[in-house]
């Protein structure tokens, strides 16, 4: 336990000490909020609104995209934070950790927890923008979504750690972002409703674990019950798998299982890479 805590506290200290990283990490989500909220909002709303003459006015794109952008931040931060393990290897600190008596499992778990904490923290920081965006979510829903954000971040950090054990240099970073992270965001329903997609894309979306994370985030944050069924549909919130409409509970159970499996794989592959 002490070992896990040591790995965690080190990453926390480093994170809060690195001002540039702290500021830099907000620029991306804010940029996305500006582009998608301000730039695309109008177009999306008129597009979707025009298809629903009765209820079109009620569709607020920003309200829809905000949880998606929080999820995107979680994904990016989780993966990048756990990739910092490669940096530790290159700068030698990993050796200090590896020759110490703490177990390989503790190292991996500590890394996953620190990356998840950082990611969740950044997600929460985005909440501070809510009043300025002219959208509103209830305080309860925001408080409820935080534990789920942490769970999702754990899954994504484990995924990052898994990738990291196959990478030797930080140069692989860019590649990972391009071939994995970006598609995972775009094909998750984070930024636009996943309706009427070509068949193959629909399969990819359903296979993408981020899809379910985003869906739960939206369902918790957006007051779904008060929305008319048409808007719910337009927002792509009636996610179906094998003909069944998924409930939040089912999705959380799925993500929880997925997290456990990923942590397991990540620790195993970390142990193999650092026997």
């Amino acid at each position: 336990m002490e070992g896990i805590f040591a790995i965690w506290i080190r990453d926390m200290t480093r994170f809060f000490r690195d001002r540039a990283r702290l500021i830099g990490s907000f620029s991306m989500p804010i940029l996305f909020l500006l582009i998608f909220g301000g730039g695309m909002g109008g177009t999306m709303e008129s597009l979707i609104g025009s298809s629903m003459p009765d209820a079109g006015e009620d569709f607020q794109y920003l309200q829809f995209v905000f949880p998606g952008i929080v999820s995107m931040t979680l994904l990016m931060t989780s993966i990048f934070s756990s990739l910092s393990i490669i940096e530790d290897k290159n700068f030698g600190y990993m050796k200090e950790i590896l020759v110490s008596p703490i177990s390989r499992v503790s190292i991996a778990v500590g890394k996953v927890l620190s990356a998840s904490t950082i990611a969740t923290f950044q997600g929460i920081m985005l909440f501070l923008l809510i009043p300025f965006l002219g959208i509103n979510y209830s305080l309860t829903s925001l408080l409820l979504v935080i534990p789920f954000m942490f769970l999702l971040a754990c899954a994504l950090s484990s995924f990052g750690l898994l990738i990291a054990s196959f990478l030797r240099s930080t140069q692989g970073f860019q590649l990972i972002v391009q071939i994995l992270v970006m598609p995972m965001i775009f094909l998750s329903g984070a930024l636009f409703p996943i309706n009427n997609m070509p068949g193959w894309m629909d399969v990819v979306v359903k296979l993408n674990p981020v899809t379910y994370g985003v869906d739960v985030m939206k369902k918790i944050m957006i007051d779904v019950e008060s929305l008319s069924p048409m808007i719910r549909d337009a927002m792509g919130l009636n996610l179906q798998l094998f003909g069944t409409t998924l409930t939040v509970a089912m999705e959380i159970a799925f993500i929880f299982t997925f997290t456990v499996i990923l942590i397991l794989f990540a620790t195993l592959s970390f142990r193999r890479a650092n026997a």
Partner: peptide, 28 residues
């Protein structure tokens, strides 16, 4: 065992004391 490696294995972003404290935690 204690090991002083050929290359630097300190965390340069941390203070001397923090580096030592982490080591205490690693070694219980």
């Amino acid at each position: 065992i204690g090991i002083i490696f050929q290359e630097n294995t300190l965390d340069e972003k941390l203070t001397a004391k923090e580096n030592l404290m982490l080591h205490c935690r690693f070694y219980n």
